[in-house]
């Protein structure tokens, strides 16, 4: 086992001579069994669809080899690389800014083609061979709506603020630059304004003096 997430366990293994990740969505005892199975199956199916759809639009994702809906498992390509979560741990340099812009570009490509990632945190981006791979689409959906795209960006911003608080602002500005290049500055502006609105919807305003 290489990772025990809250939702799934990840195992590294070999599958017909290939290096693979075996992702198993595990049963959650706190949920009612019927709701639990329904969620695991929905997410397994949705993740598989989104992973391959993303590829079609030029976003790097692991290739899927096998899906088992009964056991809610996916066998997919193992990506040899570094999690962006660890890469962004220190000060931001030129190389890291490039990674941020690439994240923005890929997210832009997804949104432009009606794919919402659903959980865009830096743990779900892997930097390998000069490319950023997007993984873990389990909470994603197909949607063209402004609101869904905005929530995706809002979540990314929030993830940066809670995990990479020292460089969050700079990172987000690089990401947004990359994003705007793909979706176009007008759409980007529209989404950016909506992200601000979402922040204000919850208790997202900072005190004037802090």
């Amino acid at each position: 086992m290489i990772a025990k997430g809250a939702e799934a366990n990840l195992y590294r293994s070999e599958w017909f001579g290939r290096n693979v990740i075996f992702k198993e969505r595990v049963r959650k005892n706190y949920r009612l069994p019927v709701l639990d199975l329904q969620l695991r199956q929905q997410r397994t199916a949705m993740e598989s669809k989104l992973l391959s759809a993303a590829k079609k639009y030029g976003v790097s994702t692991p290739t899927i080899y096998e899906i088992d809906m009964k056991k809610t498992t996916i066998i997919m390509e193992y990506i040899e690389g570094d999690r962006v979560k660890e890469l962004l741990n220190y000060e931001l340099n030129e190389d890291k800014k490039v990674i941020c812009r690439k994240i923005g570009e890929s997210l832009g490509r997804l949104h432009k083609n009606g794919i919402i990632h659903g959980d865009p945190t830096t743990s779900n981006f892997i930097y390998a061979h000069g490319k950023v791979f997007f993984v873990d689409f389990g909470l994603g959906v197909f949607s063209d709506s402004l609101e869904d795209a905005s929530v995706d960006l809002h979540l990314l911003k929030r993830a940066l603020e809670s995990t990479h608080f020292k460089i969050a602002e700079e990172c987000f500005s690089e990401i947004f630059t990359g994003y705007a290049q793909i979706v176009g500055s007008e759409r980007a502006k529209e989404i950016f304004n909506n992200v601000e609105k979402i922040r204000l919807r919850g208790r997202y305003t900072l005190r004037g003096d802090t």
Partner: peptide
């Protein structure tokens, strides 16, 4: 309750794992 609390607990579990 089952839906709302499952949602809450899922996010909480992920925060612990994270």
């Amino acid at each position: 309750q089952e839906y709302a609390f499952s949602m809450l607990v899922e996010v909480t579990e992920r925060a612990i794992a994270h």
